[in-house]
């Protein structure tokens, strides 16, 4: 136990936790509106889309791959599921099934292209991003869908509270899906043999092959999982926006990548944890929220995000180099 604590204290996650807690403490003293249940629930709700995608991308990065196409996948899944839901009167299960199925199909296609053609994953997914997205907007003509099924527009609303101003808040669809995504990913990576094989694959692909891992199958799983998360995230986003817009999701893929990388996942594979990803996301969320709360124009929030990314990746690189400690290399 003490051993594990000592190890944790030297980890990227521990440093990130310290930064997030410090930031949170500063904001709590600076403004009374930060540490309120309502603000925290709002934050969770608005970051659910990025968070669910980050959980999926983490698995891909750990396996040693990368996926850029998931925003397009999400757009397709969302459009397909909700237009069918309205047209054929589908329920929760069918709608989610359709979105998830579409996501998985896109993910499997990515994996198949990467593994069978042996093109680097970044190139394949840049291509499929354009294919999925281009076809979607071509076929739909870029039309928004505002007419959503009633049950979907209402969403879910658990443990409802009402604050002093009579504004209700509680566990909604977004928060529920976000918690599910992170829990599922944590269980997958830490508690199942598939998750451990994914870490091993990302750590040393050749060795995994030699030891008899089913590398192709693992990659199908990994990109399929990313697609699964894209499907879920797409519905969380549509429910929040109360509409389906084929053109608004694409372009946010690098934001998700930034969150996962801030959380300590390596683009070289084999490294990254769910806790780190949660904290990476928390850092972005709390910082952007805090800037607004202390009265800095939201126009500047991107600047600070960029600054945080740059400082974080530079300091990580410097620490790694100091640890390696070789002047020659």
């Amino acid at each position: 136990m003490i051993d594990a604590l000592r190890r944790f204290s030297h980890s990227h996650e521990a440093r990130l936790l310290a930064v997030v807690l410090t930031l949170g403490a500063v904001l709590t003293t600076a403004t009374p509106s930060f540490l309120t249940l309502q603000n925290l629930f709002d934050l969770l709700t608005s970051y659910a889309f990025l968070g669910i995608l980050a959980a999926g991308l983490l698995v891909v990065l750990v396996a040693g791959g990368i996926d850029i196409s998931f925003t397009a996948t999400a757009s397709v899944a969302q459009y397909l599921a909700l237009s069918f839901a309205k047209a054929y009167g589908l329920g929760w299960a069918e709608t989610f099934g359709l979105a998830i199925g579409t996501g998985i199909a896109c993910g499997l296609l990515n994996a198949w292209l990467i593994e069978s053609l042996r093109i680097s994953s970044i190139i394949v997914t840049i291509a499929t991003l354009n294919i999925f997205y281009g076809l979607l907007v071509f076929v739909t003509g870029g039309q928004y869908i505002y007419a959503l099924p009633d049950w979907f527009s209402k969403g879910i609303w658990w443990f409802e509270f009402v604050d002093a101003d009579q504004i209700p808040y509680g566990v909604n669809l977004q928060i529920l899906l976000l918690l599910l995504a992170f829990t599922a990913t944590w269980v997958l990576l830490n508690r199942t043999t598939i998750g451990r094989q994914i870490y091993a694959l990302g750590g040393n692909r050749d060795a995994a092959g030699r030891l008899g891992f089913h590398v192709f199958g693992l990659n199908l799983f990994v990109y399929g999982y990313m697609g699964f998360m894209a499907g879920i995230a797409s519905l969380a986003q549509a429910q929040l926006a109360q509409s389906v817009a084929p053109t608004v999701l694409v372009g946010r893929e690098l934001d998700v990548l930034a969150a996962v990388v801030l959380g300590g996942a390596s683009l070289n594979g084999g490294v990254g944890t769910v806790l780190g990803t949660v904290l990476g996301l928390a850092l972005l969320a709390v910082m952007q929220n805090g800037l607004v709360l202390v009265g800095i124009s939201s126009y500047w929030s991107q600047f600070f995000v960029g600054l945080v990314i740059l400082v974080s990746v530079s300091s990580t690189s410097l620490t790694l180099r100091r640890r390696a400690g070789s002047a020659v290399a």
């Binding site: 451990r196 750590g203 040393n204």
Partner: peptide, 28 residues
């Protein structure tokens, strides 16, 4: 093999017992 075929990101214990992860998916 000369490159040892180890997984640098995993612990000593997991590297030694890694073949236990193979086969039907299950809880670790």
């Amino acid at each position: 093999y000369q490159d040892l075929s180890l997984f640098p990101n995993l612990t000593v214990a997991e590297n030694i017992a890694v073949s236990g992860h193979l086969g039907r998916p299950r809880v670790v």
